[in-house]
Design a protein around this nucleic acid. Sequence first.
DNA 1: GTGAAAGCGCTAACAT
DNA 2: ATGTTAGCGCTTTCAC
Lengths: 354, 354
Amino acid sequence: MDAAKVSLRDVARHAGVSPSTVSNVLNGRAGRTRPDTTERVRRAVRELGYAPNQLARQLRTGQVRTIGLIVPSVANPFWGFVALRVEQAAREHGYQVLLCNAERDTEREVRFAETLLDSGVRGLIFGSSPLSFDHLGHLDGRGLQVVAFDRSPAGVSPLVVGSVEIDNVLAARLAISHLTGLGHRRIGFLSGPIRTVSRRERLAGYRHALADAGITPDDDLVWEGSSVSTFGDAESAELGRTGAHQLLSMPARPTALFTINDMYALGAYAGARDLGIRVPDDLSVVGFDDLPVLAEVATPPLTTVRQPLPQMMRTATAQLIGRLEGERSGPPDHTTATPELVVRQSTARRDHHE
Amino acid sequence: MDAAKVSLRDVARHAGVSPSTVSNVLNGRAGRTRPDTTERVRRAVRELGYAPNQLARQLRTGQVRTIGLIVPSVANPFWGFVALRVEQAAREHGYQVLLCNAERDTEREVRFAETLLDSGVRGLIFGSSPLSFDHLGHLDGRGLQVVAFDRSPAGVSPLVVGSVEIDNVLAARLAISHLTGLGHRRIGFLSGPIRTVSRRERLAGYRHALADAGITPDDDLVWEGSSVSTFGDAESAELGRTGAHQLLSMPARPTALFTINDMYALGAYAGARDLGIRVPDDLSVVGFDDLPVLAEVATPPLTTVRQPLPQMMRTATAQLIGRLEGERSGPPDHTTATPELVVRQSTARRDHHE
DNA sequence: GTGAAAGCGCTAACAT
DNA sequence: ATGTTAGCGCTTTCAC
């Protein structure tokens, strides 16, 4: 009854068969054994409460049904949702997910990758972070396969077997043309360090869209906060607030703000409030991500750009597992999803109040 | 250079020594080897880019420097912060953390526990969830050790070697007496399913504090939402909104709301707004958790009860690892931390506007 | 101070 | 249809 240390051998003895038979029965290769033997083994397993030692199994087979998910910050609910989706998809393939919180720190990314590799994990999904995968270059040749999410495969590391992202340029255009359509001409761009591909692209999209509307981009309106804290994206909101303070204290202050994610937008709300500036009456705000519920319950409900997360994560996971199981090979798979603007109540016509 | 499949034997050969010597050098048992041998081995390791196979090591030693953290919902940033802290503390002891998202589902908890056990993990930290640990009873005897956070060890399972929680009764009293002190007499209690010890205790504290203020608790003011969605705590905010709708539509509606966590509070904000009820002018709201930044940037900034998370998680982690390493034994360790009320701007005097 | 040998629990050829 | 055997990569007595 006590499952303390029953090994496969114990089961074999108890059932009066050899270890290999037990192994065969347990690994679906029934049919290879006579029904009654199979039954005897099954019963022994049950009676002894046998649970296979995965360590031994994995050591022997070299197969580990686990993938790693490396995210920039578990404190940002966005990544919580990403994790949720990946885990869900992985489970459908019989895989487990190891969630690693890298805090946007390259060194930590490397350590995670190494540790996982050492314990047999061969597949990793990376959430957006540094520009390239150069820091993982030395891991090449160890069988590692990487799928990038929201992080272009630009570095073209041989490790990268796939990528999933949205069209960030388009996403930014969506946001900006919504704003210009409402008559805004001085639109701020609020972001943390622009060191990821996705952030670069969003900035590019912002500039293009402005130009398209006949507005000359003004770099003074681009605020790039630099993080100091080691505590990740709680900080996002904080940065959004600080950025808003600065941008809104300019002589010719912006009438609208486009933020790099919803946490920044929420922070910007607070920043505006601090200065007695009302959203959306005096200031329009567009966020990014459409954080489930949070964006909706915010005061006022946040207009934001949504990424189709569920499909994206499903795709990323399937790509990775496909590679791991050798069903897929050849050049990397790249998927680009289409963003969508969700208009709520944080944006209003500029002339509204003038 | 290629770290593909260098094993300890390869290193030994390369250095002209035996495997055991390499093992000794690598496991700190230097001093047992002559300095020059040690050096030779070290060089070989470097030259070959050797990385020990943890699977093999763990199989042999039975030691796995990994603990599991089971949380009810990674989509609630609160648990993200918990994870952050646990991981931080664990790292200081040289341990890794496996983050498991149980979605408040007992079956998933069991599966996680079993899977981890099968891969050698012996220590688990459980975030609040069901009332007891009965569902894990069958795992007894497999060497599992559990520390409960925000989840009383009431079930007194032999698995539980420690627990860390705040004084939830006191926490609720803090919130309620703040409110009664402001003149509120009809105070709603907004929660999801009251199936955890901590939620029960908060409800008890709410009732006591009311009684202390000479108010007869009215059960119509206790709203216990039932979750349906499988998507965890994004739902919290949703439930908060729904609950607020109901409570605020009563003939004699409450003038204040105490919510089971900050996500509910944010949801309640939205619910009130939907009905044209202003916070804090027409309705005071007190949350729970003090979600970093989110509570602060909310509109209005949220008055809430704070748990001293960093210390609590540090304690929980240390307790668990202490047990795993056999430094600690005997009866379970219980720690109760003291909550603190953070007053911001979501609460106001009741007579304010009457 | 160093090496030889056994074995952790499992699987997979290869017999029988 | 089942059993025998070898070995995944490591650690650890126990000899030398």
